[in-house]
Lab assay of single mutants.
Amino acid sequence: MASQGTKRSYEQMETDGERQNATEIRASVGKMIDGIGRFYIQMCTELKLSDYEGRLIQNSLTIERMVLSAFDERRNKYLEEHPSAGKDPKKTGGPIYKRVDRKWMRELVLYDKEEIRRIWRQANNGDDATAGLTHMMIWHSNLNDTTYQRTRALVRTGMDPRMCSLMQGSTLPRRSGAAGAAVKGVGTMVMELIRMIKRGINDRNFWRGENGRKTRSAYERMCNILKGKFQTAAQRAMMDQVRESRNPGNAEIEDLIFLARSALILRGSVAHKSCLPACVYGPAVASGYDFEKEGYSLVGIDPFKLLQNSQVYSLIRPNENPAHKSQLVWMACNSAAFEDLRVLSFIRGTKVSPRGKLSTRGVQIASNENMDAMESSTLELRSRYWAIRTRSGGNTNQQRASAGQISVQPAFSVQRNLPFDKPTIMAAFTGNTEGRTSDMRAEIIRMMEGAKPEEMSFQGRGVFELSDERAANPIVPSFDMSNEGSYFFGDNAEEYDN
């Protein structure tokens, strides 16, 4: 993207840094990872977990959730003011799984939030270390993106479920800051804005008074975040219109849905970061690795190297396929839920299948599930090659597409044709070009129609051997075009429920 120079890199967003050079960025990201790792080690000690239990991804998720809940100030305040039966607002906890007599047992633990905050700050040299908290939120978000298709949420806001490739980060909490905003897809931002506008339509006082002023500035800020994701002048001009509207209503909703559809071809720039579970960072720190000293990046080879040398386990339900569970977590670790499966298959070195073909449910185990038949197995999170994460949407291309997802959002900077089903997408653009945004709409449609099938995206960008740390010898991959490109292809993934 041309304006790259004016933006802070995501590592800076990730670490609240002012302008830093590459070495400083690597050190501050490393410091953040160190903090998460030290916190995780301490929690495993508190909970008396064995090494194996500490490497269980379900335990990692519970521990991450506990610290996120302990620092969720708004919710904590709300819980104190609106006490609900049987919930102690000062405590947080969740299921911890232990191996007892050759069987997995679930144990519900409860801790004072104050105590968890103390352990977290102690692991982070006394700081609140917001960057580390956001990092864990993005890992949870990436896992949700890989596990669930947001059909219901899309339909509720009037969008087409086939636009799911635009929904990265749709389950990120509001408090995820600049680093969170960077990884949100165009569809996620559109959905947040539509929800806001709908509230304004239904509630006369939404934009009024002292609160209304705050609401208005939040609305304009979200519009600017979305505008910054678009790469064409016409899309940005249309966002200006939406932002400046005196009284946002149905016309703005129409414009936003139009823009979301246009992003299936004229893709937005959305950041991709490899955020790993805390149970990967903990053992690495415990083994003596100093992330701050060595430096770390979320968008280069580092996460690949770390996963190459990590042992992570997962509980497996009786009829689940461990290899499929591994694929789910591998995609989440690489922030690749909406990437082209052919690119992923090449990088991973084994075939990556669409969601609907995987015999696996989510990673988390519900409290009512029976533990008797639970097994555990090693997650295979290694890769054959590594590639640089991208934040450009890439230019655009036609490809055989599917009944489910009709476009992709690249996660890796790797040369390819970008699949999208042009006739299906263009069919949504018939007729409606009147109104105050008509010239911009016409211009956007013209650009979409001009998108050429034979153009290559990320020209000359390749993948790298894991021994090639400096990215000196790019390998331009070859793809098996007979395979499906979309992950949520004609899909039956479970729906995400809060």
Rank of each mutant, 00 (worst) to 15 (best):
M66C: 13
C223G: 08
A153H: 03
Q122G: 01
P410Q: 08
N432S: 12
M374F: 05
G394T: 00
K31R: 15
D128Y: 13
H140M: 08
H140G: 10
I194D: 14
S287V: 04
S326M: 10
W207P: 02
Q398V: 05
L344K: 11
G462L: 15
G17T: 08
Q149A: 04
E484Y: 00
E443D: 13
E81L: 11
Q327D: 11
P248T: 14
A442K: 01
R75P: 03
R174V: 04
Q4Y: 15
S486P: 01
I57Y: 03
M447G: 10
M448R: 10
P83R: 07
G362R: 04
V242G: 05
N368P: 10
A366C: 06
T378C: 05
E495R: 12
I138P: 12
E192R: 10
L154E: 06
T157C: 13
V29P: 05
R150Y: 10
K357E: 14
D340T: 13
E294F: 04
K48P: 04
G177C: 07
A123Y: 01
F304T: 13
D421R: 00
D88K: 01
R26L: 07
K273F: 03
R208Y: 06
S314R: 05
N125R: 09
T360N: 07
A278W: 07
R199P: 08
R243D: 11
F488H: 05
L49T: 14
M374D: 09
D88R: 00
L61P: 06
E254K: 14
N321Y: 11
K48I: 11
L328E: 03
K77P: 02
N492K: 14
M191K: 07
V190E: 01
S413L: 09
E484N: 03
L68Y: 07
E244L: 04
S269Y: 02
N492M: 10
A70L: 01
I445L: 11
L56N: 15
I197W: 12
R400L: 02
T157M: 04
N202G: 10
K48H: 13
I138Y: 02
D255K: 07
N309W: 03
E434M: 08
R65P: 11
G228R: 11
F338T: 12
I445S: 09
L47E: 07
Y97T: 05
R236S: 06
R317K: 12
S274H: 00
V190T: 14
N309Y: 03
G185A: 12
T433V: 13
E220Y: 02
Y10P: 06
P453Y: 01
E220L: 01
R416E: 12
K351P: 13
L47S: 09
S335F: 05
Q459Y: 03
M189H: 12
L264Y: 07
E64F: 09
L418Q: 09
R400D: 06
I33Q: 00
F464I: 00
L110H: 08
N211V: 11
Q308S: 02
S383A: 13
A278N: 14
C223S: 10
L226Y: 09
G132N: 10
L256T: 13
A2V: 14
M191L: 15
L110P: 13
E192L: 02
A178I: 09
Y52V: 10
S28F: 11
V270C: 09
R267M: 03
G5M: 02
E469T: 06
D203R: 01
E455I: 13
Y281L: 09
A427R: 05
V414Y: 00
S478A: 00
I406C: 11
T45R: 05
M66L: 05
E375Q: 00
Y148I: 13
P248C: 15
R389H: 00
Q42K: 14
A411K: 00
K91R: 15
A2S: 00
G126A: 14
Y296D: 10
Q405W: 11
E494H: 09
Y313P: 09
L172I: 15
V155C: 07
F206S: 10
L418W: 00
H324E: 07
Y52N: 13
N397S: 08
V408H: 12
N144H: 02
I201M: 13
E64R: 11
K214V: 10
A2D: 01
R55H: 13
K103Y: 01
A2K: 01
R389S: 04
M447F: 15
A286H: 10
P423A: 10
P423E: 02
D72A: 09
L68K: 11
Q58F: 07
M163P: 00
Y40N: 01
P95W: 08
S467T: 10
A70Q: 05
R121K: 12
S28H: 09
A27Y: 01
G349H: 14
G17N: 04
V463S: 06
S367R: 08
M137I: 13
V270Y: 06
G362Y: 04
M238I: 13
I138E: 01
Q42S: 07
K351Q: 13
G228P: 11
I41C: 13
S383L: 00
R121Q: 04
K87E: 12
I257G: 10
R246V: 04
V285H: 15
R65F: 07
A123Q: 06
F488I: 09
I444P: 01
K227T: 09
M32L: 00
V363N: 04
G394I: 13
N417H: 11
Y219A: 10
R221T: 03
R38L: 14
R216T: 14
M136I: 15
E449V: 05
E454V: 15
E434C: 08
H135Y: 08
P419D: 00
S69T: 12
E434Y: 04
G158C: 10
F39W: 15
L154N: 03
V408E: 10
R65D: 06
V363H: 00
F304C: 12
A427L: 15
Q235T: 14
Y296S: 12
R355I: 10
E292A: 08
V67M: 14
D290H: 11
A323D: 01
R216G: 07
N125A: 09
T188D: 09
G132I: 15
A428V: 06
Y78W: 10
M440Q: 12
M371I: 15
D128A: 14
N321G: 06
A22E: 05
L166R: 00
K293L: 04
M440K: 05
L298E: 04
G212C: 09
D439P: 00
A218G: 05
F338R: 05
N59T: 13
E53D: 13
R416L: 04
R26Y: 09
N124V: 03
L379G: 03
T188M: 03
R436W: 07
I96K: 04
S482E: 10
N224S: 04
M440R: 06
D145A: 11
A411H: 04
K31F: 09
G30L: 01
V463M: 10
E449T: 14
P322I: 07
T6L: 00
N59H: 12
N334R: 00
M239W: 03
G30H: 00
M13N: 10
R461I: 00
K31V: 05
P283E: 02
T215R: 06
G450P: 12
Y281G: 03
E53Q: 12
G268K: 01
M191A: 03
E252L: 05
F464Q: 02
P474F: 03
R246Q: 14
I365E: 06
T62V: 07
L276G: 05
R261Y: 04
I225D: 07
R204N: 07
G460Y: 00
S69P: 11
D340E: 10
S69W: 04
L143V: 08
D497V: 15
A181D: 03
T146D: 10
R384A: 10
T130I: 01
S457M: 01
L328Y: 06
G490E: 06
S84D: 00
V299N: 15
I253N: 07
R199F: 07
L341S: 11
T45P: 12
G187V: 11
D372G: 08
L110D: 10
G295K: 06
L49E: 02
V352Q: 05
M32H: 05
G349K: 06
T157G: 02
M167I: 11
Q399Y: 03
P89A: 15
A123V: 12
E494W: 01
A179Q: 06
V408F: 09
T130P: 08
W207A: 02
R441G: 02
G268F: 06
K452M: 07
R65M: 05
R117F: 07
E449K: 12
R19W: 04
R391I: 07
L315P: 05
K113T: 07
D101W: 01
S376G: 15
R26G: 03
P89M: 04
N205F: 00
R208S: 05
M331L: 15
H324Y: 04
A234T: 02
D51A: 12
S262L: 01
S28W: 01
E11L: 04
W207N: 05
A22W: 02
